[in-house]
Amino acid sequence: MNTATNNPGLTRSGKPAARIASGRTLLEVQSVSKAFGGLLAVDDLSFSVREGEVLGIVGPNGSGKTTVMNLVSGVFSVSSGEIYLDGQDLTAVPAHKIARAGVARTFQLVKVLPGLSTIDNVIAGAVFARRRRWGSEAKSHARNLLDRVGLGGRQTQPVSSLTYIDQKRVELARALAGDPQILLLDEWLAGLNPSELQTGMELVQSLSDEGRTIILVEHVMDAIRSLCDRCIVVNSGRLIAEGTPSAVLSDPAVIAAYLGEEHD
């Protein structure tokens, strides 16, 4: 199998290469399909994510990336196929149980809780998920996470007064608050200006350095190249390539799929 470890040039600093190779499979997606009426948004897709790995999912607009995230996190149930987290069958499990099992996510169109303060938005992620905290413990945990994403000192602000970018940070902090086993980031780096992008990438890198398992859906190819250990490419819901970012992104089939799409 073609992984980052076989390609020393792409192994990122800070992460022991050996651990990635030996990491056990955490998430297993097996021939999953999802139909919306006549439209097959995800078509017989299989992939797996190992513990501690950062997996990139790329593909042109409308290729089914968000739908994959929605299936894993339980927004929709699959039309066919199976999904396992750490050996546990999540296929027909409701979203809240999936969250408790340790899947956390951000949304492509940011979803904050507008009526709550910034810190309560983060606490929301800490109270009901995998690792449950409440009261002062939840509060200090949320405070640390806000510091971590660069929003220290903004805790009491109403979340609706934050900028779009800062709301994305809140969402990330909320996702982290339950100590998830796997983190799904749906275009979390989209819409950032170059310096914000740099900070954002460093943040994701630091999460990965802690050993977190992450699925990263991105259109920003620089981010895919520098953050992902491995990457899959979907087009019209089907898997068309899999491998290291550099190998995959130079694959003629992938280039053909992207042809006419802007990419950097």
Partner: peptide, 17 residues
């Protein structure tokens, strides 16, 4: 607290468990 979150956004509520 759960109720408050549900009132704000039910999808988020489900996704935080």
């Amino acid at each position: 607290f759960a109720l408050k979150i549900i009132g704000n956004d039910e999808t988020v509520a489900r996704h935080v468990g």
